[in-house]
């Protein structure tokens, strides 16, 4: 009984961790490359989630179409966020000071409140989801003694694809090389012929695009979302990004899995030794204790630069 509780929690924790890792890559890109502290990360994730739900519920469009639509909407939103908010703060700056970084945090905070209130007003606080839609023939399958929802498996598969694609983009393409060059030294990059403004604009588009795309993962995994769902994902993404090292996409992915694993394990331990009802919220707290420990003892992250 005890052992199976541990196994179940670990399997679910790792699945969630894979999803968390992918859903945090947009944050690590924005923060690492542009020094933009995107505290609206969770609300931007929900742009994708809600779009998929709306397309499915009102137009009957498959969530796979919703997935592509959420990427497209994210790229456009990224373009708007760059020119509307970020360009003036970080566009032509060679070295982003702490003061500018703080300004990006405040401006993104304003965006998060604006988005959150819009969700409450236009969509409401009731849970929304894809109802009975599920991936594959059954809504859940047994892996050994563990029951896993097929939607979570689909989400994990898409998560791995997102991370792999982003990693290849950053390491194998000209655009990726210029993004990494700008991340390391914007002025040196401009002196080897890279246009930093163009790269910052494209980075914002990619980061926001991959975030709204990850909204697909959230809506599948969570079964139902509310505007407050953002309040779980924003802080978790920060934990993961700090753990993985700013700007490190693979680091974020592994950081996500570590956090999922810690969450799963501590949930099992708390359930077995203390109180099953308190296990989920308390396990979430352990994730933030990890953040404190990392900030104190390994501030550059586990795979730090």
């Amino acid at each position: 009984m005890g052992l199976s509780t541990v196994v179940i929690s670990v399997v679910h924790g790792v699945l969630w961790g894979i999803i968390l890792g992918a859903a945090s890559t947009g944050l690590t890109l924005l923060w690492g490359v542009m020094k933009v502290v995107n505290v609206a990360h969770g609300e931007i994730l929900l742009i994708g989630s809600y779009l998929i739900v709306i397309l499915y519920a009102f137009l009957g469009l498959s969530p796979y179409i919703g997935l592509l639509a959420s990427l497209a909407l994210g790229l456009i939103t990224g373009l708007a966020i760059y020119w509307g908010m970020l360009h003036k703060l970080v566009g032509k700056v060679e070295k982003v000071t702490l003061k500018i970084e703080m300004s990006t945090l405040l401006i993104m905070f304003a965006l998060s409140v604006a988005l959150s209130n819009s969700y409450y007003h236009f969509i409401g606080s009731e849970p929304k989801g894809l109802g009975l839609w599920h991936f594959g023939l059954k809504s859940s399958i047994d892996i050994g003694s563990v029951v896993v929802r097929t939607n979570s498996i689909l989400a994990a598969i898409v998560a791995v694809i997102i991370v792999a694609a982003l990693h290849l983009l950053l390491t194998r393409t000209t655009l990726g090389k210029s993004i990494r060059a700008v991340m390391q030294d914007a002025q040196a990059a401009s002196l080897v012929g890279i246009n930093p403004v163009r790269i910052k604009m494209l980075t914002t588009m990619i980061a926001i695009g991959v975030t709204t795309l990850s909204g697909f993962l959230i809506v599948l995994h969570e079964t139902a979302i509310i505007p407050g769902t953002a309040l779980i994902y924003t802080p978790l993404a920060f934990v993961i990004v700090v753990l993985g090292g700013l700007g490190n996409v693979l680091g974020s992915f592994i950081g996500g899995i570590i956090i999922g694993l810690i969450y799963g394990l501590s949930k099992a331990i708390i359930a077995l030794t203390f109180n099953p009802l308190a296990s989920a919220p308390l396990a979430l707290s352990t994730a933030f204790i990890v953040l404190i420990l990392v900030l104190l003892f390994k501030p550059e992250g586990l795979f730090g630069r």
Binding site: K177, S178, R180, A181, Q184, D185, A188, V192, G193, I194
Partner: peptide
């Protein structure tokens, strides 16, 4: 670019020159 290899650094010169 300290976090890139010597080859990547030099490729960047060629790619954007």
């Amino acid at each position: 670019f300290n976090e890139m290899t010597v080859l990547e650094n030099t490729m960047i010169g060629a790619l954007f020159g």
